[in-house]
Design a protein around this nucleic acid. Sequence first.
DNA 1: GCCAACGTTGGC
DNA 2: GCCAACGTTGGC
Length: 165
Amino acid sequence: MSPARPRQPARISHWLMKSEPDAFSIDDLRRKGQEAWDGVRNYQARNFMRDGMRPGDKVFFYHSNCAEPGIVGIAEVATDAYPDPSQFDPKSAYFDAASSRANPRWMLVEVKFVKKLKRTLSLKELQAQPALAGMALVRKGNRLSVMPVEKAEWDYILNLEKHSA
DNA sequence: GCCAACGTTGGC
DNA sequence: GCCAACGTTGGC
C-alpha cells in the first residue's frame, strides 16, 4: 500500500497591507500602476514580504491613520522581495545606518494595482463581523502593517462589498 | 537576559 | 491632538 503523500500546508497567498492615504493612497497606486512598497521597518512585516509573498499573491489595500480607516482596494504582489533602496539613502526618512548593501536589513516587494472597491470596507464594519474576529487587523492595539489573510477571510470580506454597510 | 525608557503606530 | 498599545534600544 502506498503511504499517504505528506501534504504541504497551503501556502499563504492573501495579504493585507496598510498605507496612510496622505502618504500613498489607493488612487496613487491606480495612477502609477505599480509601486515599490518601501519604508517597512518592522521585522515581522519584513518577514512576511521576504518569506511569504510571491508574485501573483493578492493584497487588500488598507487605509490607516485617516478619517475612515478600512480596506479600499485590491493589489497584487508583482515581484519577489529585494532590498529596500531607501535604507541606504542618508537623505531618506527610512535611512538605516546599521544596514549595509552587503547585508541589507530591510526588504520590499512591488505591488500593482488591481482594482478599487466600490466602497470602503471600514475597520468598524470589519470589527462587527464575528467571522473575522480571528484577524490580527481587528484586534485592539494591532500595529502590524503587513499581515496574512486566510482564504476564508478574504472571501468573506470580498462578499461584504456587495452589501450595504 | 531583564526591563525601563523611548519612539512609533494608528484609532478615535 | 490625545494616548493606549506595541516594538526597539540600551544600561545594568
